[in-house]
Amino acid sequence: MHSPDHTQYTLRLQLPDETATANLGGQLAPLLFPGMVVWLEGGLGVGKTTLVRALLRALGHRGSVRSPTYTLVEIYVISRIYWYHFDFYRFNLPEEFVDAGLGEYFRGDCVCLVEWPQKAVGYVPPADLAVLLQMAENGRVGEVVAYSEEGKRCLSELRSHWPVVAN
């Protein structure tokens, strides 16, 4: 869903197992701040919810973290910041985003983590950062792509912690 003209703002990561995916979530957690929208892209079972679970745990959340496949959004309040975890997998039409009244969640005082954003294309706000997870021969490969100045700052910090995977 992200465009190739942002290659200078892309970080490719080798994620050999679930622990590595969780580590990515833990590294991203302190880099995100209110007002940011993060798209989580990739097929079923590639680790999008695992990444969100690790991210929220790194921020101090101790309760359960469920996939919002059926509820559309799960809400977490951590340190007075609202973290909204969306999953649009079950959308048949992008307009369902509007019908469900989800636009009101995307505000400057919260962080929005969005699985399956392509199912609400044209309605879901643009990403500051996108994380694309794909199955690979040795686990998974992740791409983190920055689309805004805030996203570029996050990506720059993240880059200092991870080795880059050759294309």
Rank of each mutant, 00 (worst) to 15 (best):
C110L: 03
R107K: 14
E74R: 13
V77Q: 07
G108F: 14
L155H: 13
G45E: 02
L28D: 03
S156V: 09
Q118T: 05
N92I: 01
P30Y: 03
L113N: 12
T49M: 04
G42P: 11
V145P: 11
M1N: 04
V164I: 13
L133Q: 08
G42A: 09
P126V: 00
C154W: 01
L32E: 02
K152M: 09
A22H: 09
W83I: 06
G26L: 02
K119W: 08
L31I: 09
L40E: 05
K119N: 11
L72F: 15
N138H: 15
V38A: 09
V164L: 14
T7K: 12
I81A: 04
G47F: 05
D128K: 07
V77I: 09
L32Q: 03
Y76G: 12
H2G: 10
L93K: 11
V145L: 14
R153E: 06
C110S: 15
L155A: 09
H6D: 07
G122P: 09
V73F: 10
S3W: 02
D17G: 01
G139Q: 10
F33H: 04
F86G: 03
M1T: 12
V121E: 15
V46D: 11
G60V: 11
I81V: 15
L55T: 13
M36R: 05
L56G: 07
V38K: 08
L55R: 08
W39N: 15
F86P: 10
W116G: 06
T21V: 15
T7E: 11
R53L: 06
E137Q: 11
Y76D: 08
S3P: 01
Q14D: 07
T7G: 01
E137I: 01
G122F: 10
V73C: 14
R140E: 02
H2M: 08
R140S: 06
D17N: 07
S148M: 12
D99T: 14
G45M: 03
N92L: 06
P30S: 09
K119M: 13
H161K: 11
L132Q: 07
I75F: 00
H161W: 02
D87H: 05
V144A: 14
E41Q: 09
V144G: 14
A20W: 00
T50E: 03
R90S: 05
Q14L: 01
V124C: 01
T21D: 02
M1P: 07
D99A: 13
H6K: 14
L59N: 05
H61L: 05
R153Y: 09
Y89P: 04
E157V: 11
S160G: 04
V124E: 01
S160C: 02
E157W: 10
K119E: 15
